[in-house]
Design a protein around this nucleic acid. Sequence first.
DNA 1: ATAATCGGACGATCAATAAC
DNA 2: TTATTGATCGTCCGATTATT
Length: 286
Amino acid sequence: MPIYVSSSFHLLLFSLSFSLMASLDTNDSHPDSSRSTQSSLTIQSTSLSSGTIHMYPFPSPSTSSQPQRSKRRQVKNACTNCQKACKKCDDARPCLRCVRYGVQEACVSSQRKERKKGVKRGPYKKRDGKDRAASMNTNHPEAPLQQGVHTAPPIPPPLASSPVVSSYMSFGLPTGYYSHFPPPALAKSVEAPSIYPPYIFTHLPPTVQSPQIRQEAVINPTCVPHQCYSAAFVAQFNSPVYSPYSIARPDNQATLPNYTVYGSHLSARQSGTSSSDCGGDLHRSG
DNA sequence: ATAATCGGACGATCAATAAC
DNA sequence: TTATTGATCGTCCGATTATT
Ligand SMILES: [Zn+2]
Ligand SMILES: [Zn+2]
């Protein structure tokens, strides 16, 4: 039963941000300032008008020139539903989004196709010390902007002395674990917020792993304790002391009135349509 | 106001290549 | 053989559009 705790600094940030995020809808987004066209590039700030929260748990007081942000974390394989909808998935199966839409049964991981081999690449750039430093350093004027992200000192691994965990990366839970959600009262958006309290993980309750009971839990939100996401959850979340054991995932959110059921309205693209598949850098060129 | 769509930025992966 | 590069493939942010 892993319990990851962290600094109160971040808890504070989170409690603050969730109230602001309440208005977010399908923009279950999180700070990604470099690609946002209308959100600011500020660090640890909040854009109230757009609803975009900029939270960068790694404060960079000294380097004021470069906005520092942690990397966006991706799951290895999104489920097919999330994949089609271009929405954030998670490592658990069923994923939270499918649970929310009541399509747990259809939540299966997508398949990655094998990378093609035998593609020639041409010469790499030289690898002596200097070139290397240059290529890895943003100081290089020619370096792509993208590389600038890595300018900051490498983020220490979790077991490093610092308890600080990136909120941006916090969603990376081991399979079978769910992070806690903001209290439903705050999380009125349909899609799950991308920023989760990163510090309290709870093991997937066995009941959730059973399809039958899972379904019941969705159908009947007023279910057995540990199968539902009830006032108990809210209470715990609001409590200064978090108990990792009695919290189940918010399954009952799938039955919230505003949520439409997969098959009628689910925001996943029809597989047969000619619409684009929402993917990739097809446009990108050398 | 809320939900769905989807363009494209960003992240992760891993074969090709370079260095040892 | 190991280390590094960098193209490919994938995720999903977030603006736009559609629906209620
Ligand atoms: Zn999913
Ligand atoms: Zn799913």
